[in-house]
Design a protein around this nucleic acid. Structure first.
Length: 808
RNA sequence: GCCGCUGUGGCGGAAUUGGCAGACGCGCUGGACUCAAAAUCCAGUUCCCUUUACCGGGAGUGUGGGUUCGACCCCCACCGGCGGCACCA
């Protein structure tokens, strides 16, 4: 019985200890080497601990970090904690504890788990968004935005979730189908004074600069759709018998002759002014109905349009026609001007509304049948005076010219993107550093008084109003200035997205007390070369971070327009039943169990081998067992049962492994570069299979192989490296190179086809020319047999590849 | 409904300027080793037909069509799965 000396527990503990003691992965900015900044999306340290999905992305970045170190780069590879957030506050409200202790415990557990996987983070750069030394700078950025007018207070309709944690406001992005994204609480639209960030001021740049970065097309497309730039026209309609005008936004000014009524949003500021006495009761009843509905209920009305006539009429500027003005909630107050001209013949929504309320439908473009549906395609304009006979683009331009000429309208760009609602009625977030004074003045907390610390709260209670629990902490909330003027601190805190919008900058210089980070260091390390995380952050985090980065760019703080040069989304790891892992389905895998049973190296290897990084794959217990077996097979190849290097590993090279070794170096190097870890690993498996067939294993090949192995399974590789006779770590050893001449063969195999089907093969000298190939192919006995009853019509010969004979 | 991605053996997956489909792994089958089993090593493994065996033949990358000497790959239409958006005028 052969006993295996490999023991993952001992080896992994040994090397994790070694790396920690020697600070093996400490980044030294002063080194004169090219830089590589590889970043993970930092986790929210939840009470559940690490999920097997985390190590997938983390292993991928760790492979790149280790690979690049061996290629001679200085590598920045940090980790930290996105530690403000809802669950901690909920737990605190329930138990009366402060979320700080709970969060600290969770971080401790997360860190233990992450360390157990052997990732090569520089832990001296660990950051934590809830650390006052960190959020000092989150607050500082907010203050810069305030000074530039990018942070402002506004009475606005917000997404109020009264059942969520004693009531809180959530951002548009956090509302899904009229319910909160987390927890699924109903959301209502209520007016409330809120802090807003003017992300819309950056809409164009956020859209256009997507072309500068190497991100998955799907994510770019999602951001483009989210920003939703549209070009159209704003047109002014006079309201009959008043001095009022209604400005509408439309992308189809060419259909102005087909307008048959107008709609303004129920919240539009002119509703009260223009409603006639006769319609007043009906309008007010409708407004009331809308107000008490949640967004969910409003969405449910999707199929069934509602609205009410105001009694007023607008005048179509192009032909003087009288158009009835309605209010309806299918027109949104928050988009465009909150008012539209309705062209039911060529807009499906207007068409549905017109059908329901029996309003006229007047076609102005040929094609389609407006009795059945709105016709939205291009066509020849009719019933449109000076636009008759034109196509859509020409008619749009002609109408724009006419509107501008008459001064009743102009070209206008609109965005689906809204300003970012930035306040939350919560305790566990960064305090917004603002004081509201009794005389009505609002001031920032002076920069030299930052951080404005979150006060300790022994027993967290909801305020009972729409304010955060901070409102209860009178000592903190109430302030008096040197002149005796009384003031009250802002009780709203920042959303969880605040810290994550800039944390990647702090890793560059995490202990700096005077600025976000040293200017020279920012120049040195930005942008992030590779950023890996889940696709669930496609719009929220990644759009906010780009926005903040651009603000900081304008302030001269960061030197690049974009923060993340290359982005990759790892796929999801599903349960073994191909469903999303969840407690209720009972298919959750805990990384701790896998590390205990198989070791970190096996888990890392398995997660990289199971499929392409970007795809979702189902967990398989057999698969992980296979990875364990392969690690043991590698071990056994080189090491005997007494834990000594086998005699087969020698300085003699009989040449039998030359080709496969050089192929392996080439493929692994290229595949790692492209993050194709599964195929890189399979090539290493091919190499090992060949090694088992070889009589001697050249030492240099074994060394090169262990180096290639080390980014994936670093603990085993370090141990093998030592057994190969080296001291210290393999981390900074030089990455192997390959000899291209060893890859070339003097002869190549040519495929012989008849009518596209493979019939035979031919061995010929490399680069044999077309004519010669054709001759050889036609002389091939097997092929002759196939051609015996046929006439050769054509021969296609491709050197080094194929000969195809067409015959019948 | 709109936008994006995706579909290959029993399973995870390979294969791209269009040139031998199924690398590698799992599983399965057989052999060696063993008193035996496990582990290990070696061999085989897309399906169907043919054959004692060897050798052969046919079909085949979601479905139907097309381009091409040649298509998993390019084009058109359709079906299924995943993700995003969802009255944005």
């Amino acid at each position: 019985m052969e006993k295996l000396a490999y023991n993952h527990e001992i080896i992994e503990r040994k090397w994790q200890h070694y790396w920690r003691e020697h600070k093996t992965f400490k980044t030294n900015s002063a080194e004169d080497k090219p830089k590589y900044y590889v970043l993970d999306m930092f986790p929210y340290p939840s009470g559940q601990g690490l999920h097997v999905g985390h190590p997938e992305g983390y292993t991928a970045t760790d492979i790149m970090a280790r690979f690049k170190r061996m290629e001679g780069y200085k590598v920045l590879h940090p980790m930290g904690w996105d530690a403000f957030g809802l669950p901690a506050e909920q737990y605190a409200l329930k138990t009366g504890h402060n979320p700080r202790e709970f969060t600290a415990q969770n971080i401790k557990n997360f860190k233990r788990q992450i360390r157990s996987l052997g990732f090569s983070y520089d832990w001296d750069r660990e950051i934590n968004t809830t650390d006052p030394n960190f959020y000092k700078w989150t607050q500082w950025i907010f203050e810069q935005m305030y000074k530039k007018g990018l942070a402002y207070e506004k009475e606005t309709l917000v997404n109020w979730a009264p059942d969520m944690m004693g009531g809180t406001v959530v951002a548009n992005e956090e509302v899904v189908n009229g319910k909160t994204e987390r927890g699924g609480y109903p959301v209502y639209r209520v007016p409330m004074k809120q802090w807003m960030l003017k992300i819309t001021a950056y809409a164009d740049r956020l859209l256009d600069d997507l072309d500068l970065i190497d991100w998955p097309e799907s994510i770019k497309e999602m951001q483009r759709n989210w920003i939703g730039r549209s070009t159209g026209a704003s047109i002014n309609f006079k309201v009959e018998n008043t001095d009022e005008e209604i400005e509408v936004y439309t992308t189809r000014p060419d259909t102005l002759f087909g307008a048959s009524y107008m709609v303004i949003a129920p919240e539009h500021k002119l509703v009260k002014k223009i409603t006639t006495d006769a319609q007043k009761a009906a309008v007010e009843a409708y407004e009331k109905k809308i107000e008490t509905k949640s967004d969910l209920e409003r969405t449910d009305l999707n199929k069934d349009k509602t609205g009410v006539f105001t009694g007023a009429y607008g005048i179509n500027p192009v032909n003087g026609e009288k158009l009835p003005i309605w209010i309806a909630d299918y027109v949104l107050a928050s988009y465009g001007t909150g008012a539209i001209m309705a062209v039911p013949a060529h807009d499906q929504r207007d068409w549905e509304f017109a059908k329901k309320f029996d309003l006229p439908i007047k076609p102005v473009i040929e094609g389609g049948n407006v009795e059945d549906a709105a016709y939205t395609d291009d066509g020849v304009h009719i019933n449109s005076d000076f636009l008759d006979g034109l196509d859509k683009p020409t008619a749009i331009q002609r109408m724009l010219d006419w509107l501008e000429d008459k001064g009743v309208g102009k070209k206008k760009v609109n965005y689906r993107l809204r300003d970012w609602i930035f306040s939350r009625q919560r305790y566990w977030g960064e305090p917004i550093p603002v004081i509201h004074w009794e005389d009505g003045e609002t001031t920032l907390v002076p920069e030299d008084e930052l951080p404005l610390k979150l006060p300790a709260a022994k027993d967290l209670q909801t305020s009972g109003t729409r304010e955060s629990p901070l409102a209860n902490l009178k000592d903190w909330v109430n302030v008096v200035d040197e002149n005796g003027r009384k003031g009250r601190r802002e009780t709203n805190t920042m959303p969880q997205w605040a810290g994550s919008s800039w944390y990647y900058l702090r890793y560059i210089d995490p202990k700096n007390n005077n600025q976000i980070a040293d200017q020279d260091l920012l120049k040195e390390w930005l942008p992030v070369d590779l950023y890996i995380g889940g696709a669930e952050h496609a719009v929220l985090h990644l759009l906010y971070a780009r926005f903040w980065h651009k603000v900081l760019y304008d302030l001269g703080v960061v030197p690049t327009k974009e923060p993340f040069e290359k982005l990759v989304n790892q796929g999801m790891i599903l349960g073994d039943n191909h469903e999303k892992m969840s407690k209720s389905k009972g298919n959750v895998i805990n990384p701790d169990d896998i590390v205990d049973q198989y070791g970190a190296d096996t888990l890392r290897l398995y997660e990289m081998f199971m499929g392409p990084l970007t795809e979702s794959v189902a967990w398989s217990e057999d698969g992980i067992h296979g990875s364990e077996k392969w690690i043991e097979r590698v071990w056994r190849l080189m090491i005997d049962e007494n834990n000594h290097l086998r005699d087969r590993v020698t300085t003699i090279n009989d040449g039998s492994l030359d080709k496969v070794y050089n192929q392996t170096v080439k493929k692994v190097t290229e595949d790692f570069e492209q993050l194709h870890f599964n195929t890189a690993i399979s090539q290493m498996m091919v190499f090992v299979n060949d090694c088992y067939k070889a009589s001697a294993l050249p030492l240099t090949y074994m060394e090169g192989f262990v180096k290639m192995l080390s980014p994936v399974v670093p603990h085993v590789a370090e141990e093998l490296w030592q057994l190969l006779g080296h001291d210290g770590t393999i981390t900074y050893e030089k990455w192997p190179t390959y000899d291209a001449s060893k890859l070339e063969e003097a002869t190549v195999q040519i495929v012989l086809q008849v009518n596209g089907k493979v019939r035979s093969h031919l061995k010929v000298a490399k680069d044999t020319d077309k004519a010669e190939l054709e001759k050889l192919a036609l002389a091939d006995p097997t092929l002759q047999e196939w051609l015996s009853d046929k006439t050769v019509r054509k021969v296609i010969a491709i050197p080094n590849k194929i000969v195809n004979v067409v015959a019948n």
